[in-house]
């Protein structure tokens, strides 16, 4: 029997179907695809992006968006390492030799503070979220450049920085079939589990959906919308800083351009995973699927030895296809709404 509901369910979970199709496709395309090393690479390369997308998913569901996270990520990584390593070349640190654990706490608090400031400008200052987060994106990036004067901060082979790098660097254990699992991958998995709980099973998540779905209604029913928006930007800032901490361990040396243009991939991952740019729709699991799909495609195209000149074209097309599916989903929903309400009348 043809049923709109069944079709909608399918489309809502299409990301996992696409992921499987793409996966099988690549297995046939490259003998190297289904290897422990490659599976391990897919997961490792998805970790940092995944954390950023998780933060963005909260913001998008509340009907806002946050362009600034790529800069917050960069600044967090930069400051985190700078606080630990010696001054002068080649480390270019602050020579403060801060305890790395303290540096981690400071880094995450900085992310929270940036998010809170953005949230205040939007809710109290009554400014548009696009302008505020775009300005934050530029200001924070500018601060990084001014702060470093273009030179990278590096903690390579520095024992105390290794503690900081642990999150992004260390292999946790080996799983047969999945190869080396990095701490970063485990951490990202845990973050998605917690974020899923918050979004699906906590009042906070429920209220974000309400705000994104109908802000007026949420306000009229006594939800403190502005407070929630500030909190959601704070959460986004913390997750961006966490992603920065993670990325610091992966690239070791922090260039002042770390994370630049990352935000496009973040939005692509969220949207492909079914998180709506209009607010109110999407799930953490969908977002996770989107992230895994992007990483799988990146690895697969490289293993297929597609020319670098074509890779961007293909990636862009994939985003377009995802948007096409999203547009069909909205149309289908409207169709089925009309169908059901006419039946009821």
């Amino acid at each position: 029997m043809f049923s709109y509901n069944r079709l909608l369910f399918l489309i809502d979970h299409l990301i996992w179907g696409i992921l499987i199709v793409v996966f099988v496709f690549f297995i046939f395309q490259s003998e190297h695809f289904l290897t422990e090393r490659n599976i391990s690479n897919i997961l490792a390369a998805a970790a940092v992006l995944g954390v950023l997308v998780a933060g963005q998913t909260f913001v998008l569901i509340s009907g806002n968006f946050d362009l600034s996270t790529e800069s917050t990520l960069g600044l967090a990584a930069l400051v985190g390492v700078w606080l630990i390593v010696p001054a002068g070349t080649p480390t270019n640190g602050g020579g403060i030799f801060m305890n790395p654990y303290l540096s981690i706490i400071l880094t995450l608090s900085m992310g929270a503070l940036i998010g809170y400031a953005i949230g205040c400008l939007i809710t109290v200052g009554n400014m548009h979220n696009f302008i505020v987060t775009l300005a934050a994106l530029l200001i924070i990036r500018g601060l990084m450049l001014a702060f470093t004067e273009g030179a990278p901060v590096s903690g390579f082979n520095n024992p105390s920085a290794d503690v900081f790098y642990w999150l992004g660097h260390e292999k946790a254990f080996k799983v047969p079939g999945f190869g080396n699992i990095f701490v970063a991958v485990l951490a990202t998995g845990l973050i998605y589990f917690i974020c899923h709980l918050i979004l699906k099973h906590h009042k906070f998540g429920r209220e974000l959906y309400a705000i994104g779905g109908n802000r007026d209604a949420a306000e009229a029913l006594g939800i403190n919308v502005n407070r929630r928006i500030r909190q959601v930007y704070m959460l986004s800032g913390i997750l961006a800083a966490l992603a920065g901490w993670m990325l610091a361990g992966r690239v070791v040396s922090i260039q002042p351009n770390l994370g630049e243009t990352f935000i496009f991939t973040v939005f692509a991952g969220a949207v492909i995973g079914g998180v709506s740019l209009q607010g109110g729709r999407g799930t953490m699991l969908g977002a996770l699927g989107g992230v895994l799909l992007l990483s799988t495609i990146d690895r697969g195209l490289n293993l297929m030895q597609v020319s670098v000149f074509w890779i961007k074209v293909i990636q862009g097309s994939i985003i377009l296809v995802a948007m096409l599916i999203d547009a069909q989903r909205v149309r289908l929903q409207e169709l089925s709404n009309i169908a059901t309400s006419e039946k009821k009348l």
Partner: peptide
């Protein structure tokens, strides 16, 4: 780094 890892995967 990701891209170089893909080279390694391909041996």
């Amino acid at each position: 780094i990701n891209d170089i890892n893909d080279f390694i995967t391909q041996g």
